[in-house]
Design a protein around this nucleic acid. Structure first.
Length: 191
DNA sequence: CGCATGATCGCCT
DNA sequence: GGCGATCATGCGG
């Protein structure tokens, strides 16, 4: 089975427990993905690509699954996403939280404000900072450059929860769609 | 070109 | 629970 051929909602669940790895000049940082959110293109009011909106920013969402989509939000945070679905269907999965594995000391240096290890990566902006993801990662292909996905923990369906997405109050009917997925009882999940 | 807004975080009460 | 920070992006003029 090719991971990147999965429908977006399935991929969002499949990514849980997998290992996300970043190599750069500071070394390697990695973590298990413990929380994701799916954004389903044209019909999903919460998605940047709602109604097939196509701009310089959303362009990578139309690319092939496994392309990396990073964007800047609230004047200070980077969010890290993986494009999914067929080419020209602008869907993506936001990585919302990680459980750190490697490079924890480097993460602490990058996340000076974090008081506990949990706070290093328990939110989309936090994990980007801890892992060293930036806008320059936008458009990279997963597993072709310095950002990789590997098998991690195998999860059963009963270990996964779902619920409404966070921070999309403007999205009208899409507000309640259960497109957020997380590993049950994992302490690194946001909120 | 100006300006409103946001897939958040951290600090304050 | 509330709010200010701070700027890339998108859209209107």
């Amino acid at each position: 089975m090719n991971l990147w051929e999965l429908p977006t909602l399935d991929l969002a669940k499949e990514l849980l427990g997998m290992k996300l790895i970043h190599d750069d000049d500071k070394g390697t940082t990695s973590g298990y993905i413990v929380e994701t959110e799916a954004y389903l293109g044209p019909e999903d009011r919460a998605a940047h690509s709602y109604n097939n909106r196509r701009t310089a920013r959303t362009e990578v969402m139309y690319d092939e699954a496994g392309t990396i989509y990073t964007y800047f939000i609230y004047g200070m945070h980077v969010c890290f996403n993986i494009v999914s679905g067929p080419v020209n269907k602008p869907e993506a999965i936001l990585i919302r939280a990680l459980q750190p594995i490697e490079g924890i000391e480097e993460m602490k240096e990058r996340r000076v404000r974090a008081k506990t290890e949990i706070q290093l990566t328990n939110g989309p902006g936090k994990l980007s900072k801890a892992m060293g993801f930036t806008l320059s990662d936008n458009g990279k292909k997963m597993n072709e450059e310095n950002i990789r996905i590997e098998e991690g923990i195998e999860l059963g369906v009963h270990e996964i929860s779902s619920g409404p997405r966070i921070g999309i109050q403007y999205a009208e009917e899409a507000v309640h769609y259960p497109y957020r997925f997380w590993i049950k009882n994992n302490p690194y999940v946001s909120r």
